[in-house]
């Protein structure tokens, strides 16, 4: 019988799903992913998580509950650092413990530590540690990873192919919606923000569409050390947009009580306001399911972006 490995559709799944899924499949496992976030998942997540956690972590718990009884293994790596000299939100390091503490009757958890803070030399060891659950053959594990990584890289490359080109935009307003991937790509938690913006006739861009190298180079221009990987990506995105001036508005999506965003959202807002004239809005999400608040903010923001444009055209027409 095939071994079943479960991956919760939450947190870094939204960034690395293709890598993880292909890796396990290459090793002959059947991958089971939790359903898309729904009312039941969010409800169970809130009920079964320590109170002070942020909503994305609560959602993660809900997704674990959604699949835990259907799988032999649950993939919940202890993610410490995914980049040299950079850290990740501390809640990711404690995730396996939080799950074990709050949820009973769990299958075996693959909680291998992922820590590249010193260097990526430990990568092969890490891969082997994870692969060992499914195979004893070192070579097979490594080749499975290589194949999965190629798929992952290719998909990343396709996302970045010319999203900023003029042809794509036609005459639409270009709105960057930025934030942690697990807030941007879970339409339930962000109440369909991306579709809402699109339905108002704007073209939506995300930080994932910018070349990694740009993000690196621009983040380096920031005066100070960016401790977190997320911080580098978001600050790099902001500085890139400020410099290239190829965007009509920026919406930052954050969640209530996010420690990283308490610093990063503030830095991003200050940079945009001081160094550019790009309209900016911060949207904070939490357990709320009433959509009136977010609809009003998005509508008003798009109105403002369009209104500014009309007035700028008027001014230029007069002289």
């Amino acid at each position: 019988m095939t071994v079943k490995v479960g991956i919760p559709r939450a947190l870094l799944f939204h960034e690395y799903h293709l890598l993880w899924i292909s890796f396990f499949e290459e090793l002959g496992a059947q991958v089971i992913i939790s359903e898309k976030t729904n009312k039941n998942i969010i409800g169970e997540g809130i009920k079964n998580t320590v109170d002070e956690a942020c909503i994305p972590v609560k959602l993660f718990h809900g997704h674990v509950l959604n699949i835990k009884d259907k799988v032999d293994y649950l993939f919940i790596p202890r993610i410490n650092s995914i980049f040299k000299n950079e850290h990740i939100c501390p809640k990711f390091c404690g995730l396996p413990e939080m799950i074990k503490n709050s949820i009973n009757d769990l299958p075996t958890i693959i909680d291998t530590e992922i820590n590249f803070v010193k260097s990526k030399n430990s990568l092969k060891n890490t891969i082997y540690e994870i692969g060992k659950y499914f195979s004893n053959d070192y070579k097979q594990i490594m080749s499975a990873y290589d194949k999965a990584y190629l798929k992952f890289k290719n998909s990343k490359r396709i996302i970045k192919e010319n999203p900023f080109s003029e042809v794509n935009m036609l005459n639409n307003k270009k709105i960057m919606i930025m934030g942690h991937p697990y807030n941007l790509y879970d339409p339930y938690i962000n109440m369909d923000s991306i579709d809402k913006i699109k339905s108002m006739g704007a073209y939506v861009l995300t930080p994932e569409m910018i070349e990694d190298q740009y993000i690196f180079d621009y983040a380096k221009k920031f005066d100070g050390r960016l401790y977190w990987t997320f911080a580098r990506k978001l600050v790099g995105t902001a500085l890139y947009l400020i410099d290239k001036k190829n965007i009509d508005g920026i919406i930052y999506v954050s969640t209530f009580g996010c420690g990283v965003d308490s610093v990063v959202a503030d830095i991003v807002e200050k940079l945009i306001r001081r160094k550019s004239d790009i309209p900016f809005m911060l949207v904070t999400l939490d357990e709320h399911s009433g959509e009136a608040g977010i609809n009003t903010r998005i509508e008003a923001f798009i109105d403002m972006v369009k209104w500014r444009d009309i007035s700028e055209n008027n001014i230029s027409a007069h002289g």
Binding site: F256, F280, M281, L285, G293, D303, M304, W307, R308
Partner: peptide
């Protein structure tokens, strides 16, 4: 500014 909405903020959650 100059008769158009330039920026706005609303209370959070």
């Amino acid at each position: 500014r100059n008769g158009i909405i330039h920026d706005f903020a609303m209370n959070t959650v």
